[in-house]
Design a protein around this nucleic acid. Structure first.
Lengths: 217, 217
DNA sequence: TATATAAGTTAGAGTAATCTAACTATTAAA
DNA sequence: TTTAATAGTTAGATTACTCTAACTTATATA
């Protein structure tokens, strides 16, 4: 049985390594992601290694072992199903779901997870456009780019966001952006790291950094 | 902000004092109810007193102060709403809901509680027949007896159970009993502390102790 | 009203997760 | 190839909750 905290560390490792082509993560990176000090992460890493959930040695990189990956995928599945529930059934907005799902993802009941999945009609994606892992622990990673990688003059369709925080999502909404919206890149100022885009006829200027947090196809 | 544990102590105190006519509870009683040692309860009681949630002094009885009662009612409201959700929407059986609701009752989101209430159609009772506190913290205690108090030859209607544990509820189901069932008391053996009852034409013999856990009107 | 029993408390220790401050190892650049 | 910057670790302390063992207070009855 894993603690609430251990589940969070494993989920964080999964999300850090889910980023394309990555296999391993570092202690500081993990600590920053979870909002704890590196010393705290080191202590927990020793414990997770003891439980054979991760591969890790002093001053080395961290990778998930199969058992750790499985647990992390279960938590991620619950997180994304609960987000869908809140959005679809509880009238929550896009930017409100993440925080509450962070709590709900730790509820222990495989029966509940599967009934919830059924109740929601076996959704494949959560409200942020991210794929929901299956009960068997499969996660289909669809190939996608970020808005920052789109050439000037090209168009693309927004499929997901990288950042799930409320402030970020509120800004996305303010720009008139949303999942499945068509975005055209009008111009790029490399000097100033700015991007001019058009969505539903509405023109906006966003930073390169912002554009890296919008996933498109 | 209350911890998960503090919430559990307050809820336990509410449930112990909810029993008709009671206002106060004892340390050992509370500890037994929560499955901790008396020494542990003493430590927590000091903390809850410090936070002005309870009235309590060394070797004295414990009572909830208004703020403590309010918090406890909020947790109880969430517990009973989630039980209703699991039973009505997630296809859980009577004996499965309590355990998972014990976890769900600690989710912090007033928006979620109220949306859930709406989603369920503002239910007044949970699947065990217990009243659900309102958002304003009102709990209507309907006057009720236990099956053990019914005279021989009299009939009554089951409205709730005192014990929400799975083994107890499974036995209730096995006897053909359920909320709103009419129960007739056929005979009583005071010597042996046994009760002969009839439900839907099915006759059973149950202990006095069992009958004290069935609420009827 | 003395005293045995039940109820409740204190002291001291353990575990889980966190921190700060000081230290060590790795790496990348000069 | 030395060294400065970055990354990571250790030691020691803190907080929250729990325990056991020994002790104290309240109570109930003989």
């Amino acid at each position: 049985m894993l603690s609430y905290t251990e589940e969070n560390y494993l989920k964080a490792l999964l999300q850090l390594t889910l980023e394309e082509g990555r296999e391993e993560a570092g202690t500081n990176e993990l600590a920053a992601y979870l909002g704890v000090k590196p010393a705290t992460a080191t202590a927990m890493l020793k414990k997770l290694r003891e439980k054979e959930l991760i591969e890790y040695e002093r001053y080395g990189k961290i990778t998930l072992r199969p058992a750790g990956r499985k647990s992390a995928l279960e938590v991620l599945r619950k997180h994304r199903l609960w987000e869908t529930f809140l959005y679809e059934k509880m009238e929550f907005t896009w930017d409100e779901v993440h925080e509450v799902a962070e709590q709900l993802e730790h509820i222990q009941s495989s029966k509940l997870v599967n009934k919830l999945d059924k109740f929601l009609g076996y959704p494949k994606f959560d409200p942020h456009g991210d794929p929901i892992p299956t009960a068997e622990g499969e996660l289909k990673a669809i190939p996608r780019k970020t808005l920052s990688q789109i050439e000037v003059g090209e168009s693309c369709v927004m499929v997901a966001v990288r950042d799930n925080s409320a402030p970020f999502l509120q800004y996305v909404v303010q720009l008139g952006l949303g999942i499945n919206n068509k975005i055209k890149v009008l111009a790029r100022q490399p000097y100033d790291a700015q991007l001019e885009i058009e969505v539903n006829g509405q023109k906006s200027t966003v930073s390169q950094k912002f554009a890296e947090n919008i996933f498109v196809v």
